[in-house]
């Protein structure tokens, strides 16, 4: 037993020494490698030029940008901390882009292709996009701008200009099956998909906000006819059903987005 303990100590010692050696090598060799790693939102050799320079060519975007949600952080002459407000906080420093005469994706970052710029500020969204169930943004199959218009007045809008978005329009472009009309619609859809779904990512399948009957009961809870009973509408007897699982399981209200057959969305 003592022998094993000494072996483990020796192993740990060698590991510590090796780690120290690697660290010392890493630090002392800095001067021998004239290279820097690429830090996100930097463009090698570029510097910040300010919002006014961008406006000279991109006036169609800058003239309405102040009205957008991102305009909340926007000053024409900027804040003291560089890259915290305005165009270059998302697109990176623009001096080289301007000197090159512009050009799509030339010497400028395009957050539409890489969500990194967005996640610099939307830290909590970065965490949500790593949850088990998520829209595959970090996997490169979707981008933020497919749902959000970063320059427009409403982040959930499909069209340009100042117009306000219609509810669910952003989701409907991909999820037509759920957003199509139904003879008997679920009224919750009028309030928006996010009543039930957490758009960026969730720990639950189907990006649900909650996974049990509480998801439904937050809107459908009502006065009860007895203690411990769960009655929904004037037809009670839901107590045993909710103990079975959720409202949409066990062959009950399965048509959660709406039904073309049954007013209570049983099919």
């Amino acid at each position: 037993m003592l022998h094993h303990a000494r072996s483990r100590q020796a192993l740990a010692g060698w590991f510590a020494v090796s780690l120290l050696a690697v660290g010392v090598w890493a630090l002392t060799s800095c001067g021998t490698v004239a290279r820097t790693v690429s830090v996100p939102l930097t463009i090698p050799g570029a510097s910040y030029v300010g919002n006014q320079a961008c406006a000279e060519c991109h006036r169609n975007l800058t003239q309405v940008f102040g009205a957008s949600p991102h305009g909340r952080y926007h000053r024409e002459e900027g804040l003291r901390m560089a890259g915290q407000t305005g165009c270059e906080s998302c697109h990176g420093p623009g001096s080289l882009h301007a000197q090159a005469g512009g050009g799509r994706e030339r010497l400028i970052l395009n957050p539409g292709k890489d969500a990194g710029a967005c996640l610099e500020c939307h830290v909590e969204t970065h965490a949500e996009l790593r949850l088990p169930h998520r829209h595959p943004v970090l996997e490169g199959k979707l981008s933020c701008v497919e749902c959000h218009d970063p320059h427009g007045q409403d982040l959930f809008k499909a069209h340009g200009g100042l117009a306000m978005a219609r509810v669910n329009e952003g989701c409907a472009s991909c999820h037509r099956e759920q957003a199509r009309p139904f003879v008997f619609e679920h009224e919750a859809l009028r309030e928006g998909c996010t009543v039930c779904h957490q758009a960026h990512g969730s720990v639950h399948p189907a990006l649900l906000v909650q996974r049990d009957v509480n998801l439904c009961l937050k809107c459908h809870a009502q006065p009860q006819a007895g203690v411990g009973l769960v009655n929904v509408g004037k037809m009670g007897f839901h107590t045993d059903f909710v103990r079975l699982g959720t409202c949409w399981t066990a062959g009950c209200h399965t048509a959660v987005h709406g039904s073309n057959l049954h007013p209570k969305m049983l099919y």
Partner: peptide, 28 residues
């Protein structure tokens, strides 16, 4: 810390709770 090393980290804690009038403990 050195021009040859870049480290980034994100830490997030989300604490959420939903209680409905029916979720009184006996059924939900």
């Amino acid at each position: 810390p050195w021009r040859r090393l870049y480290v980034s980290g994100t830490f997030s804690v989300a604490d959420s709770r939903l209680r409905t009038a029916v979720s009184n403990g006996s059924s939900v």
